[in-house]
């Protein structure tokens, strides 16, 4: 009797989830999707990714950007990366991984109230630099840090 009940609950829960998924799929905000730059995320080199995101590749190296990432990452599938920027008026932070097939990992757009700090976890296919690109007052600033990867994290 218990097993029947359990089965019933499981089935109904799954059906519920499926219905919810279909419903939200139709109602997905289209304007949000449009902002996502396919050209930038599909780009296979850093310059093309930057052109897709920011329209240019003129960057200044900056000591005011700090990248926190492990020196050696045992598992490339989960590499914790934090970027903090002390540059006044930081508008956005991009994380690029030149060692991957498509270098652009993420772009974070900040509001005027948001601090120049983001933290996330990324996949790295091999030992490579983690590059942070920051836009502040219409200019691009950059910094990088090398991460040694023992096991690549991009499948295959």
């Amino acid at each position: 009797m218990n097993t029947t009940r359990r089965k019933f609950l499981k089935t109904s829960a799954m059906t519920g989830a499926a219905v919810a998924t279909i419903g939200t799929g139709i109602l997905a905000p289209r304007h949000a999707m449009a902002a996502w730059s396919k050209a930038a995320f599909d780009a296979t080199d850093v310059n093309a990714a930057l052109t897709g995101s920011y329209g240019n590749t003129d960057m200044t190296n900056s000591n005011d950007i700090e990248i926190k990432a492990p020196d050696i990452a045992e598992n490339g599938a989960v590499v914790p990366v934090s970027v903090s920027s002390k540059i006044a008026g930081t508008e956005s932070i991009s994380i690029l991984l030149p060692g991957n097939n498509t270098p652009l990992a993420a772009t974070f757009t900040l509001s005027s109230r948001t601090e120049g700090f983001v933290s996330t976890r990324v996949k790295m296919s091999k030992t490579a630099d983690v590059v942070a690109v920051i836009r502040a007052n219409g200019k691009l600033y950059t910094a990088k840090k090398e991460v040694k990867v023992t096991i690549g994290g991009c499948g295959g």
Binding site: F108, T114, V118, T120, V122
Partner: peptide
């Protein structure tokens, strides 16, 4: 009011983690 918009590619890890600060 929007405080952060993150655009992600496939290089973000499975079960993503995100942290940020605002005032």
């Amino acid at each position: 009011e929007n405080v952060l918009t993150a655009q992600w590619g496939v290089a973000i890890s499975k079960n993503p983690y995100l942290s940020f600060k605002f005032s």
